[in-house]
Design a protein around this nucleic acid. Structure first.
Length: 213
DNA sequence: GTCAAGATTAGT
DNA sequence: CTAATCTTGACG
């Protein structure tokens, strides 16, 4: 199985976190599970910085848990939360600079039946519309923390199709309750996509279409 | 050592 | 709205 041609490169990830979070929309996340491709189009992301972002795991400096965020770009940062869930992030910035993008939702593409089994028979609309839901649908846990997405044969990202600015909306990140940056519009979603969690276009909070970045 | 909060989800 | 379930980080 080759997956060379349309793989996202290290350079793609080696950019400012905000830029990567925006550009990750429309890309394809692929997980090869028992020889089969499970994949989905990324439709929702959130940017988490380092020193200037109190809501980020990396805010207080390097620790055993967040060390991958400080490492080279293009790696997976997976963490365990609420005693039962795993969330997947893509590391950004250059080696030594903290930054990562939380993958919050996917639009299911390949291996839907397998993903349904992993998600307890839930309907397609509820398969990957949330950060912990998509890791469960792709059978990803803490053992994937530190995986090189530019080298792993079982977890990688393909170019897919970039989303034009007119279809992108920004909104505050989900689940943050403190920190000066908790209301910053660092969440990016594909407008109107049914797989987006907490759809901004259905809520009252501040959200708007972006005009470039 | 002790303890509260957490980048969530499913069910009432 | 709340239980589930356990790791991490702050404090002492």
């Amino acid at each position: 199985m080759e997956h060379q041609s349309n793989l996202l490169t290290r350079e793609f990830y080696a950019r400012p976190t905000m830029e990567v979070a925006r550009d990750l929309l429309g890309r394809i996340l692929v997980r090869v599970y028992h020889g089969k491709r499970l994949s989905g189009r990324i439709v929702e992301t959130e940017a988490y910085l380092g020193a200037n972002d109190p809501a980020s795991h990396a805010y207080r400096g390097l620790s055993p848990r967040n060390r991958v965020m400080f490492g080279p770009p293009g790696f997976a940062y997976v963490y365990f939360i609420y005693g039962m869930h795993y969330c997947l992030n893509i590391v950004t910035e250059s080696n030594g600079v903290a930054g990562a993008v939380l993958i919050r939702a996917l639009e299911p593409l390949e291996g839907i039946e397998v993903m349904q089994e992993l998600r307890g028979g839930r309907p397609v609309e509820e398969l990957t519309n949330g950060p912990a839901k998509l890791t469960q649908a792709l059978a990803l846990d803490i053992s994937w923390n530190g995986t090189d997405l530019c080298a792993s044969p079982d977890l990688f990202l393909e170019e897919g199709m970039p989303i034009p600015d007119e279809m992108v909306m920004t909104a505050p990140r989900i689940g943050l309750s403190q920190g000066a940056t908790k209301d910053a519009p660092w969440r990016f979603v594909v407008a109107g996509n049914p797989s987006v969690s907490h759809p901004p276009w259905k809520e009252k909070g501040p959200s708007k279409r972006i005009e470039g970045l």
